[in-house]
Design a protein around this nucleic acid. Structure first.
Lengths: 169, 169
DNA sequence: CATTCGTCGTTGCAAAAGCAACGAAAGTCA
DNA sequence: TGACTTTCGTTGCTTTTGCAACGACGAATG
């Protein structure tokens, strides 16, 4: 084995990390400057917009954030009035978290900007290439799904790109 | 603007972050368990393998790590005997960091494993698709290069995918 | 030379991440 | 019902991160 010519800049995990971090950072400039949000808060807000009143556990299972991180993000959002907590109906442990009007307003402001940034990125490539791009990402996820050493994918990330073969008939 | 149907799981920055983090984590299982290394240490070691005796600043400019992070990573590596510091020849400020034999031995152990993981991922897609995948990544980088709000790319990441047109004649 | 400016590496410090463990509230099974 | 297990959300605590500022050294300018 001759690893002497191992180049970091052509190493797939490194490349992924660099691009991902650069994109995330560019995005966080947007919602950071305008609303003082961090990545965790942003993900929580977006998830709530789709799913209404949900528990911490549910958020954790959907947006790829550790449980304590979700808990603290929700606390911050609550302190800023973008989110409200309520006791779960049946289960006394569950907390029903939902957007406030202020939260919805903030999202209505941020989401267009976020979408615009995304479009800038995607408009630079052809639809076919973009489709290939996402397909490759999904294939890599599938490889990791079969790897016992890799962390499992969240339910939501799995369903998003569900394999048609494994769908119920 | 109707952002009501904004899906996090189909949002490009989120997807990138999730895949990148999953891959990085899988990789760090490898060099973490075997040699107790973190991402920063891993990047520093790999860079040293290619570039010999270099300064903190040079590492910082090449492997996408903040300067203090490089400094501390080097300290840790030095404490473990994988790296050695020497006074720079001409400039008294510069520190010449280089691999020790133990560092080279560690790399000789880790790099094959890392390459194997990378190959698992890339073998799952066709060479054409993989080529498209990297080309799309490069296009997105190019978009960010033109965005004044985005952090500039490191010199090394730029040269890696240098645009032939802008090469000196 | 002396002074000013820029650069190098390090350190301080406040914020965040990750992990384990906790109390509280179901669920389970006798 | 009572003991045991599991799950939920939170909190402690240690390590890490990121940013700014610092001292040390060199280069540039007068």
């Amino acid at each position: 084995m001759t690893p002497d010519d191992f180049h970091l800049s052509s190493f797939l995990p490194y490349r992924l990390a660099v691009l991902s971090e650069r994109v995330s950072r560019r995005l966080s400039v947007e919602y950071g400057r305008t609303h003082g949000l961090a990545v965790a808060e942003w993900r929580v807000l977006v998830h709530l917009l789709r799913c209404g009143a949900v528990s911490i556990r549910d958020i954790h299972n959907c947006v790829n954030l550790e449980k304590p991180r979700v808990s603290r993000a929700v606390s911050r959002l609550e302190a800023e009035g973008l989110v409200q907590k309520a006791q779960g109906d049946g289960d006394g442990r569950l907390v029903a978290i939902s957007l406030t009007d202020a939260g919805r307003t903030a999202l209505a402001d941020i989401i267009p900007a976020a979408t615009r940034i995304e479009r800038h990125l995607t408009d630079a490539v052809s639809p076919q290439d973009l489709e290939t791009f996402f397909r490759v990402m999904e294939r890599m996820h599938a490889v990791l799904d079969d790897d016992p050493e890799a962390k499992p994918r969240t339910a939501m990330d799995l369903n998003q790109n569900a394999n048609p073969i494994s769908s119920p008939a």
